[in-house]
Design a protein around this nucleic acid. Structure first.
Lengths: 335, 335
DNA sequence: TTGTAAGCGTTATCAT
DNA sequence: ATGATAACGCTTACAA
């Protein structure tokens, strides 16, 4: 910067003024400075800047599992929105469940990050989150912890779940089973609630429908489907309501392995609409969450928060829309 | 830090010494310092550190498209390896092809990043890369630019391609078509070369095999398959060698749309082994690239580079192994 | 409108 | 073994 000043025959403060336009500077000298910056390929030292400003223009993004396309899409959205505002994104894996150390909190303070977008997963403990929020602004995505009022950007899981369930019930199914998400997760609860609403509305008794609790991963879908499809065959459910696509796929695998045709013998629906599920055979009927939008929005909420605007709605709901495809059919007439 | 010093009744230099153990300090005082750090929840200001040290313990990771699971897995690997060494990862999207501005280069210098892991895509221009490398260490993943000798971590595409092609040819196919990757990309060239080697080795004339050049995306697979399957039906290829899974899926879609059964009427193979392709019907025969490992390795190479060790092999080859599944069968006897 | 100079929180050099 | 103290490159009063 001194070099630039020298080259432009001005003082360093003048350079600083043009850099941030934080002070008046004669057009002619500004031009000289800009010129010097160009020829010297000067790039301000952001470390020094953040030292002085006591904060870096950087946020943290905590994502449990990039291999999960839903998370990857959210991450993409966050990155996009952030880079549009010249904010850097540092990628973090969440701490292992058994590591109660406040790693991210420390990061937040150490690196003077201005905030974090938190994509929470089953492993997230409330205390870790609390500790994190104590150190700086946090926006949750795809989850919500009703206890503490962190702003959260989520899809309207409940409505989505109600609507797929209605779709299934509309085909005349009466014996259903639910393969739900972790009960500790808000999405798990909401989807379950949605399913039950639809079931009640269809004149069935929600309490008569078995709920098997999974962990949102594929193997658990397979195992739970096996559990649901056991006992005398004429008591088997004719449709499976799965709280996410991965478990739905697991269920699909199991169904296939025991020779059941989907959807003729068994209807299956998922949740998320991962990009590839429309390529499966049968194409999976599911509920789409606008992952990329949610990511972008989460960043915006965080950014506004930093500007002092408290979020209008701490809990922001995005649409969750049913994607009707081929994995649902009327129940088979079983002998 | 001053607070810590005061609290522990020592000088700031002593605190600094214990923090980096960069100086001798009496065990008893060290204990006092550690204690003070704990009770004050002191976290060193990394901005100040990097200002002083003239570099931050942070790398850049540029990834074109997180929605592509291959890239997402690589990213995961990089993150994992980096966090194991307490290095932060900032996520960047590559600049748009039409933006020749050296955005990342500037970032690298501004933020005093110690290096970048670059996942290149079709859009990467040589000049942008060169400019970047001028500003700091760069390690390429999944690509390689023979012109300038940046270290690169790639899969052995050529061998992988040769082996799937052999697998296909082993079923007796004689009329093939290749749906290749962008010719500008090294992977595109290598896979093509591998296919041709196998074809020649099988006693066929490689130059007689049509090569359709795609862009690694699904729609191009569909379109190119349509092109390959046109004209008199008895001249159609009985097998399609696709340079990646996404295009293979596109091809699959087309085949299905015109009523061709895979693999009975048409064999198709891909490349990458995206996690979900084994769930398709038919399960896609393809070539696995160890994405996560490659990401981890890329970080390690970069890290070693920073330690002064030049990479043993600038071009590091990882195995690309054929995954035999259901999308290949002997050619149908056509009338 | 422009320049001078005092920090921001560290690290590292030098006396002690 | 320990403690002053001078940078690191920037921003921002304040003075000119």
């Amino acid at each position: 910067m001194k070099d630039v000043a020298r080259h432009a025959r001005v003082s360093v403060s003048t350079v600083s003024y043009v850099l941030n336009d934080s002070g008046p500077v004669a057009p002619e000298r500004r031009a000289r400075v800009l010129d010097a910056i160009r020829v010297l390929e000067y790039a301000p030292n952001e470390s020094a800047r953040s030292l002085k400003r006591r904060s870096a223009s950087t946020i943290g993004l905590v994502v449990p599992d990039l291999a999960n396309q839903f998370f990857a899409l959210v991450a993409e959205g966050v990155e996009k929105a952030a880079s549009a505002r010249d904010v850097l994104v540092v990628l973090c894996a969440p701490e292992a469940t058994d590591t109660p150390e406040p790693h991210h909190a420390k990061l937040l303070r150490s690196q003077r990050l201005v905030g974090v977008v938190y994509l929470s997963s089953a492993g997230t403990t409330a205390s870790a989150l609390l500790e994190l929020a104590r150190s700086g602004p946090v926006v949750l995505v795809d989850e919500h912890h009703p206890g503490f009022d962190l702003p959260a950007v989520v899809a309207d899981s409940r409505t989505g779940a109600r609507e797929v369930a209605q779709h299934v019930l509309g085909h005349g199914h009466e014996r259903l089973a639910i393969i739900g998400g972790p009960t500790a997760l808000w999405t798990g609860q909401q989807r379950l609630a949605g399913y039950r609403e639809a079931i009640a509305a269809a004149g069935l008794d929600p309490d008569a429908i078995p709920v098997l609790v999974g962990d949102y991963r594929q193997p658990s879908g397979r195992e739970l489907a096996a559990r649901a499809l056991s006992g005398p065959e004429d008591t088997w459910p004719t449709a499976l309501l799965c709280a996410n696509d991965l478990m739905a796929i697991g269920a699909l695998e199991h169904a296939r392995s025991i020779g059941l045709r989907v959807p003729e013998d068994l209807s299956i629906v998922g949740f998320d609409d991962l990009p590839f599920v429309s390529l499966l055979t049968p194409r999976l009927t599911t509920v789409r969450q606008p992952a990329r939008d949610m990511g972008e929005r989460a960043f915006t909420v965080l950014f506004d928060l930093l500007d002092g605007k408290p979020p209008a709605e701490p809990l922001e709901l995005h649409p969750a829309t049913v994607q009707i495809r081929d994995s649902v059919a009327p129940p088979a007439r079983r002998s």
